[in-house]
Amino acid sequence: MQIFVKTLTGKTITLEVEPSDTIENVKAKIQDKEGIPPDQQRLIFNGKQLEDGRTLSDYNIQKDSTLHLVLR
């Protein structure tokens, strides 16, 4: 499925993911596309910070959902 990740600069990254993917996996995909190390990434969905060990389906993230990427 496709999800979107919006950065603070207003750029939107499109990712191909599975609901069973962990947040860690998603961060690795963002690193592949953008070169941002996962330990600098914080992903936010519906105002909640997403934890590495959880999956997209844990957070009820579905296709065409938009996550927000904050760098630390």
Rank of each mutant, 00 (worst) to 15 (best):
M1S: 11
Q2G: 05
I3A: 01
I3K: 00
F4S: 02
V5W: 01
K6P: 01
K6L: 07
T7Y: 04
L8A: 03
L8H: 03
T9P: 05
T9F: 02
T9Y: 02
G10W: 13
T12Y: 08
I13S: 11
I13H: 14
I13L: 10
T14E: 06
L15E: 01
E16T: 12
E18R: 15
E18D: 08
T22I: 12
I23S: 06
E24I: 07
N25F: 02
N25K: 05
N25H: 02
N25E: 12
K27D: 00
K27R: 10
A28F: 13
K29G: 06
K29F: 05
I30W: 01
I30K: 00
I30R: 00
Q31N: 06
Q31P: 02
D32V: 12
D32Y: 02
K33L: 11
K33Y: 13
E34L: 08
G35A: 04
I36E: 04
I36N: 08
I36A: 09
P37L: 03
P37E: 10
D39A: 13
D39R: 04
D39T: 05
D39K: 13
Q40N: 08
Q40K: 08
Q40I: 14
Q41L: 06
R42L: 15
R42T: 07
L43A: 01
L43Y: 15
F45V: 09
N46K: 03
N46R: 06
K48Y: 04
Q49R: 14
L50K: 00
L50R: 00
E51D: 13
E51K: 06
E51T: 06
D52W: 04
G53N: 11
G53I: 07
T55F: 11
L56K: 00
S57E: 08
S57Q: 12
S57L: 10
D58T: 15
Y59R: 01
N60K: 04
I61W: 01
I61Q: 00
Q62V: 12
Q62A: 08
D64A: 15
D64R: 02
T66N: 14
T66P: 13
H68G: 05
H68I: 15
L69T: 01
L69M: 05
V70L: 14
L71I: 10
R72E: 06
